[in-house]
Amino acid sequence: MTPITEVEGRRLPLSNLDKVLYLATGFTKGELLHYYATTAEALLPHLHNRPLSFLRFPDGPDGQHFFAKNVPPGAPDWVKTAEVPRSDGVSRQVLVQDLASLMWAANLVTELHTPQWQVDAPAQADRLVLDLDPGAPADIVQCCEVALWLRERLAEDGLDAYAKTSGSKGLHLLVPLVLVPSERASAYAKRLAQEAEAELAGLVVHRMTRSLRPGKVFVDHSQNSAAKTTAAPYTLRARPEPTVSAPVTWEEVEACRDSGDARDLVFLAEDIAPRLQRYGDLLGPLNDAERAGRLPSA
């Protein structure tokens, strides 16, 4: 029998709690649900009013994956949804606004992905993202070098950058913005990526072409498109171990660059509660309107 749990007055069936999802560590579905419940206070503000896309892996990272934007079948009627414009019409997507909705989503076994805009202002970006993706043999150490250069470059334009691991191989840089059309944010991000390639010759590539990427860091600017999404802060990832897209300090980024050890910036689910206790939410300023910057004139 599937156990029923009550969360904030909502009755939730939570299934297969003993199922091992991450074979490398024995991490179970019950532990996944516990992780999201205990991280919710930091996570929920980053999901608020942002239509969710789900990468689901019900049989663990080694099983079938599928990406979904539409409301999953069987969603409770109390889970908030919103119509979202697309190039081919309108879709309806989930809004995770509270703990009950988060636990319902987590029970599907999912990564959480969000756009750089909120549902009440679609295609008006309030965040800029730069996804630093290393091509082997480059790794997150080289991403740190690029991230530090980009931080300084953004500061020249009066913009504050915050960093998190992707939870996979690289780093994400996030910048809070005064609302700006997504097309303008995309153009600015592309220009930064091109500048990084020119300045850090031999280390950075701004084009997605696979043949250009070995040994370099691809500065992916495309996720600023209104149609694209990025792994949300604190989401678990479908990797061999339960890695997290974890906020990091700039001191940690510098230390990883200097040590040359990619393991310095690998964080598992079990690492996040102590980090929150020590640092709080390092990405909290992203949700502070007073920290938002204005993009420079073209």
Rank of each mutant, 00 (worst) to 15 (best):
I4K: 12
T5Y: 11
V7N: 07
V7M: 13
E8N: 15
G9Y: 03
G9L: 06
G9P: 04
R11P: 02
L12P: 12
L14Y: 03
S15A: 15
N16Y: 08
D18K: 07
K19L: 11
L33P: 11
L33Y: 15
H34A: 12
Y35H: 09
Y35P: 10
Y36M: 12
A37C: 03
A37P: 01
A40D: 11
E41M: 01
E41A: 15
A42I: 04
A42G: 06
H46A: 00
L47P: 06
P51A: 04
L52Y: 05
L52R: 10
S53N: 04
F54I: 12
R56H: 08
R56D: 02
D59W: 01
G60C: 02
G63F: 03
Q64C: 00
H65Q: 12
H65W: 15
F66E: 14
K69V: 06
G74H: 04
P76V: 08
T81P: 01
A82S: 07
E83K: 13
S87R: 14
G89R: 05
V90L: 07
S91W: 02
S91M: 11
Q93R: 14
L95H: 06
L95W: 13
V96P: 12
Q97W: 06
D98M: 05
L99W: 10
A100C: 13
A100R: 12
L102V: 04
W104Q: 12
W104N: 14
